[in-house]
Amino acid sequence: MSKVQFLLNGQQQSVEVPPMKRLLDVLREDLRLTGTKEGCGEGECGACAVLMNGELVNSCLIPALQAEGTRLCTIEGVSTDGHLHPIQQCFLERGGAQCGICTPGMILATHQLLDKYPNPTMEQIQEGLGGNLCRCTGYMRIFESVQEAAALNPLAGK
């Protein structure tokens, strides 16, 4: 077992876990944050995506020990004071979420995308979300949600 400490959604956390335990399982089992989903467990689908030091990563491919000292943001940390983040609001209103399994990863991927390209082209949206698979929406509504979120410029001033 290893003691691993990180900043999770703004709060310092410390867990005692096997060092090769997947960060995904640490989040879901040890910290009971089940917003982060498991799809493939092989880095292919993005359902388990979180932000690590501000960068999108797949938590199913990260051993717990490598999260030591990092700053993590999961879907639970995206909203503030009980208010949905504008990206979440746009997914809700535009039908970007159906069953919801891909949604947390999609929203975090959108977060990183808009950080980099506040006004993304369709091509940039498709690349930014290219590692996130959705079995329900057919993607068009997701892309529209992202465009809407960009138009609202949720990250302005951040």
Binding site: M20, G43, I62, L65, Q66
Partner: peptide, 27 residues
């Protein structure tokens, strides 16, 4: 050795990671 883990963690997931002792060099 393990760096970004995008090969080795996939191997772990499907039960194909032979080595039982790993050292991280990612930091």
């Amino acid at each position: 050795p393990i760096a970004g883990g995008t090969e080795l963690m996939v191997a772990l997931g499907v039960g194909r990671l032979q080595s039982r002792s790993l050292l991280s060099l990612q930091h």
